[in-house]
Structures are given as C-alpha cells and as structure tokens.
Nucleic acid binder design. Structure first.
Lengths: 225, 225
DNA sequence: CTTTTTTTGATAGTATTGCTATCATAAACG
DNA sequence: CGTTTATGATAGCAATACTATCAAAAAAAG
C-alpha cells in the first residue's frame, strides 16, 4: 500500500514538519495532546516536554499554536477531500456522489496504517471541538487571504457542485452545504455533551448512522423542487 | 415603557453585575471591547483600563473572562427567548409560531432603549463569533451541570416543541433545530468573511432576509411527510 | 573523511496574562 | 455616627507566548 502524504499550504509553517523526525513528532504528539487537554490548555511548553524537546525548537516549525491547529485541520480536510474524490470516482449521478461524499465525511474514522504518523480518530475529535476556533477570530480575513481555509472550502465547493447539478434551480447550494457541514461537526459533540440539543444518542456507531440519515434526508428534501 | 432586566443563573457571577454601577459598566464595556478586539485578545486588564477601574475589582464580579462571556451570551438567549414568547403569544398553529420565532432570532437587532446598558447589535455579533467557544471546551460537562447553557437550550427546546406539534412523526426535531441555530449563528459571519461558504451576500439587510427564507424553507421541507 | 551548513538543545530573558492577597479609603446603610 | 460593604491601589506570583544567543550534534557537501 502506498504511503500518502499531502502537500499543505506553505504559509502554515516556518519549516515543513513532514521533512524531519522532530517535525513529525510535533504533529503526531500535538494531535494526542490537543485531543486530551483541549486547545486552550495546549501550549508549546507542554508539547515540548512530551516529546523531550524544547519550546524554541517547536517555534522553529510553527509560528504559534493557532497555526499548528490550522495545519492539523487543513491536513484533515485535505485527507477528506482526497477520500471523497476516491469514493465518488465511478459514480455518475450527483445524488449518488452526494451520498458517497456524505458517508466519507460522517463515518467514524479508523486509523489508516497507510497514513504516516497521524491518528485520524483523534483528529476527527479535534475537528469537532476546535475547527470553528480556527476561523472565528479577528484575523480571519488575513488567514483567509493566505489560503488557510482552502481545504475546507474545497470540500464544501465539491459538495455544492453536486447540489447545483442535482437541482440547478435551487437557490442556496452553498448555504445548504455549509449548514450541513456545521451540523456534522457539531451533532456528535452534542450527543456526547449537550444531549438535549440532538436526537442522536451517545452510542457512537448508531449516532454516526443516524447523523447520516438526518443529513441525507434534509439535503434531498431541501433541494426537491 | 418598562425597563426590563433578566435574572440570570447565579453561578455565572460572584457578585451580580446588575446590582451596581461598576457591574453595569463591566457588562456594557465588555460587550464593546469583545466586539472590537475579539474574545482571545480581551483581558480584564484592558477592560479595567477602559472603565477606569482595576483588574481586582472586575474579578470581584466574574471568576474569569470565560464566565463573563457566558454571562453575556446567556443574557442574549434569555432576551431572545423572552421576545419569542412575546412574538408568538397570539399565534395558534405551530407553523406560524415557528415562523415568528425564526424571525425574532434571525432579524437584525436594533438597540432597544427599554433595555438598560446593553448594545444588542454588538451582542448579536459576539454571539455569532464567540458563542461556540462557550461550549467547545473541556469543561463543557461541568458548565452544563451548573446550568450555564440553559437559556440557549430553552430557545432550542421551544422551537423543537413546535416541530413536534407540526409533525409528530418527524424523527429528528432537536437535531433539525440545533442545525438551524448553528446555521443562523454562522451564515452571516460567512457572508462577511468566508463568502464562498454561503449564498448570502454582504449587504446586511438582504442577507438577513435571505437567511430567513433559507431556514424557513429547509425546516418546512424537512418535516413535510 | 573532513569541512561546512543545518538542525537541535540548552539556557536566558521579556512582556503579558490570569490570577490572589492585602490594605486603605470611600460610599452606603442602619 | 459608627459600621458594614464596595472600590481602588498596589504588590506579587506562576504560567504563557514568545525571542535571542550559543554550543553541540547531525547531515550534507566537497
């Protein structure tokens, strides 16, 4: 099996973390650490201690912890986009393509041994809990100009294209897709922590399935003319 | 016109900010300051300087800046819930009630002179940009147990009840409502900062209207049997 | 297999943040 | 008028978010 890696936006880092062992350690252990203590509590000092390195060394790779978070999340959406492309390649109708793409986005991730030094399950939890924080900032316009949100926007664009093909008259394809994506990123968190906001239950296998059914149903009903 | 004020959860503060001039100053100027520099950059020190007071004095009212943010946002949702109750009082059908409630939530806020020391427009922007940060934390379960999210959950519950009445067979009333609320809180931000994620345009008057139409349409299509 | 360059570690230092504690003064209250 | 209570002033502390310097180690180049 081929070992894949993604080339991410160079503005994300000062030195490419994929180019050295220390860099890979930073990425790999930052996922574990952010997943376990949350982004607010996460510091380069704590990470440095975990990997037996120093704060200064980590700063040589990432300008600050916000950029590191964006790096991880861009990796995630790049990976999702790649998997969607793969999943829809033999499907012709926009409806089938939408369904296949939704499945990729919503399904519970398994660790793919073909992918180096990334714990995809932990990363999915990070996306659920921290993704919004990457753009809900005062520097959003600068970050956006630097292309930091391209991978996420690419996934959304791909889905919106299928909506447009399924029903060219539907007036809100982008709004519908970004709403769906928000829902996907939040509902499983609600199931765990704020259950009164969702009908999904805590059981993870079932809730992923129920979430898929919810999204599929409301997308197709929304665009039906 | 009656001057209204809301009694909020006592866990939110150490001393009730509504009980003194300093407290009111803290609330009023924290809204302006968070709106202008964002929650990450916001500190009690900066707020103290603005109101010619001291850090120590502010800490007598709020345990930390997170609690202050939750206080502001709880105030907002309490106010919205109150206005929804008012707006739907003479409406009988769940459909009409849903529509009226949606309008209250989505419409561009105007400053209500009947409400003391709160800039509702700024607060709505804060809700858009910072609300998710109140619950996307590692302490979410503790905060939830202390009742910090009750006002938001109350709004969601009220809407979900109407969904259930409109179509008792619909299987995802809470998921549908919390998805709608997410969309409302994010789409206008997208229109300003990440326009490729939405079909709303930057013009605020039009975008509020278009957002209403989008939400109404997808809710009613979703629950149609 | 040296020499040079690059990368890392070690250490130090600084400004800011997120608090807590103490004490004097001012305001409010009885 | 005396006494709670609220505020301001100041100090201090540990942690955070960096930046700078220098030497050692590792990698690359000759």
């Amino acid at each position: 099996m081929a070992i894949i890696s993604f080339r991410l936006n160079e503005k994300l880092f000062l030195r490419d973390p994929q180019s050295s062992e220390l860099g890979q350690n930073i990425v790999c252990h930052s996922i574990a650490l952010i997943d376990s203590i949350g982004f607010e509590q996460f510091t380069f000092k704590k990470l440095a201690d975990k990997i037996d390195s120093t704060e200064a060394s980590i700063y040589r790779y990432f300008e600050n912890k916000h950029r590191l978070l964006v790096y991880l999340i861009d990796w995630y959406w790049t990976w999702i986009d790649y998997r969607i492309e793969f999943a829809i390649q033999n499907l012709r109708s926009p409806e089938e393509r939408l369904q296949a793409a939704l499945k990729v986005i919503i399904e519970e991730k398994k660790n793919d041994p073909g992918i180096a030094f990334v714990d995809e399950q932990a990363l999915q939890r990070i996306v659920m809990a921290e993704f919004d924080k990457t753009y809900l900032t005062k520097q959003v316009d600068i970050d956006n100009k630097e292309g930091l949100f391209i991978p996420y926007k690419a996934v959304c664009k791909r889905l919106a294209e299928q909506i447009k093909m399924a029903n060219p008259a539907y007036p809100h394809p982008h709004t519908l897709i970004s709403t769906t994506m928000l829902s996907i990123n939040h509902q499983l968190f609600y199931a765990q922590h704020l259950p009164s906001l969702t009908d999904l239950n805590k059981d993870s296998a079932k809730s992923h399935q129920a979430l898929y059914e919810f999204c599929e149903s409301f997308i197709f009903k929304a665009i039906k003319s």
